[in-house]
Computed example of a mutant assay.
Amino acid sequence: MSLHSRVPGPIVAVGVAIGLAAVAYGGGNIVAAGVAFGLASAGIELTLRQSFILSVVVLQLVFFTGISLVYLNYRSLSLSDIGVRVPGLEGWIVLGAGFIGMILLWFVASVASVIISSRFGIEQEQQAIFEMAQQDPFIFLLLGTLSLLIVGPTEELLFRGVIQTRLRETFGVASGLTLATALFALIHIGGFGISASGLLGVSVLFVVGLVLAVAYEYTGNLVVVAVMHGLFNATQATLGYIGVRFGDPEAMVLLAGAVVGAV
C-alpha cells in the first residue's frame, strides 16, 4: 500500500499546498540571497534597485513560475486547464469590478486595522519596502511595473491556478478558496513582520485576497485575476511613491502601506 493511499486526502491536499508555497517562497528567497552574496563576494555590489529587481526575478519569476510548471507537468495539466486564456467581455467586466472591490475593501480593512491598533495599543511597524523607498522612491515605481509584468501573473499562477485548484478539488469551493487565501496571506507575513501589527497586515491581505479567489472561481480565467492583482499592487505602489516622494512617509505607512509588503 502506497503512502498516498494511507494518508487521508485532506491531509495530502493541505500538505501539497503548504509544500508548494514553502518551496517556492523559501527557495526563492534563499537563492536570491545566495546570488546577492555571491556577487558581493566577487566584488560586485548591487544598488538598491538592482537588489530589488534581483529579488523579484528570482523569487516570483523563477521560483513561483518554475514550481508551478513542474507541478502542472506532474499532474499532466496544461496552462489552458487552469484558465490561461484571453478574457471575454464578462471576464473584463469582472476584472474591473473586482479591482474596484479590492481597492474599497483594502481601504476599509486598512482603516479598521489602524483603529484596532490604536484601540489595543499595537505599534504600527514600518515595512521593509518603505524603508527601501525612503532611500530611493523610485523603488515604488519599479514595484508597480514589476507587479504588472511579473508579481501579479506569477503569484496568481501559483496561489490561484495551482494551490486553489488543488484545495478546491478536495475541500470544495468555500473551504478550498478560504484555505488557499489564508495560505496566500500567511506566506507574506515576512513582509509585515511576525508581530501583532504583522498579523493585522496579513488579515487585510486575506480580505483582498478573497476577491481574487472568488473572481478566479467565477471566471475560471487566470488572466483576469493576474491583471487584477497587478493593477492592485501598482495602485498601492503609486500611492506609496506619492507619499514618500511628496508627502509624509509615516502617514503613508498607515494608508498605502497596509498591504504593499505582499511583494
Rank of each mutant, 00 (worst) to 15 (best):
S80L: 02
D81L: 08
D81E: 03
D81P: 06
D81M: 04
D81Q: 09
I82L: 15
I82C: 13
G83A: 09
R85P: 00
R85Q: 00
V86H: 07
V86K: 04
V86I: 13
V86C: 08
P87E: 04
P87M: 14
G88M: 02
G88P: 02
L89F: 09
L89S: 06
L89R: 05
E90P: 02
G91L: 11
W92D: 03
I93P: 00
I93H: 11
I93L: 13
I93A: 12
V94M: 13
L95E: 05
L95A: 04
G96F: 01
G98A: 13
G98W: 02
G98L: 08
G98Y: 07
F99N: 05
I100H: 05
G101V: 01
G101K: 03
M102F: 13
I103R: 05
I103E: 03
I103F: 04
I103N: 07
I103Q: 08
I103V: 08
L104I: 08
L104F: 08
L105W: 09
W106G: 12
F107N: 05
F107M: 05
F107R: 05
V108F: 15
A109L: 04
A109P: 00
S110I: 12
V111E: 14
V111Y: 14
V111L: 13
A112Q: 09
S113Q: 05
S113F: 03
S113Y: 01
S113V: 06
V114Q: 12
V114Y: 15
V114W: 13
I115D: 10
I116S: 11
I116P: 06
I116R: 07
I116D: 11
S117A: 15
S117R: 07
S118G: 15
S118M: 11
S118W: 08
S118L: 10
S118V: 12
R119T: 15
R119F: 14
F120L: 10
G121H: 09
G121Y: 11
G121N: 07
I122P: 14
E123V: 15
E123D: 15
Q124M: 14
Q126V: 12
Q127K: 03
Q127A: 10
A128N: 14
I129T: 01
I129D: 00
F130P: 06
F130W: 11
F130N: 08
E131Q: 11
M132V: 01
A133C: 14
Q134D: 11
Q134T: 12
Q135M: 05
D136W: 00
D136I: 00
P137S: 13
P137D: 07
F138S: 10
F138E: 03
I139V: 10
I139N: 01
F140R: 05
L141I: 10
L141C: 05
L142Q: 03
L142E: 01
L143S: 11
L143V: 14
G144V: 07
T145G: 11
T145K: 01
T145M: 12
T145Q: 06
L146R: 06
L146A: 06
L146T: 07
L146C: 04
S147N: 03
S147M: 06
S147F: 03
S147W: 07
S147K: 03
L149F: 00
L149C: 01
I150A: 07
I150V: 09
I150K: 01
V151Q: 00
V151L: 07
G152L: 04
G152W: 01
G152E: 03
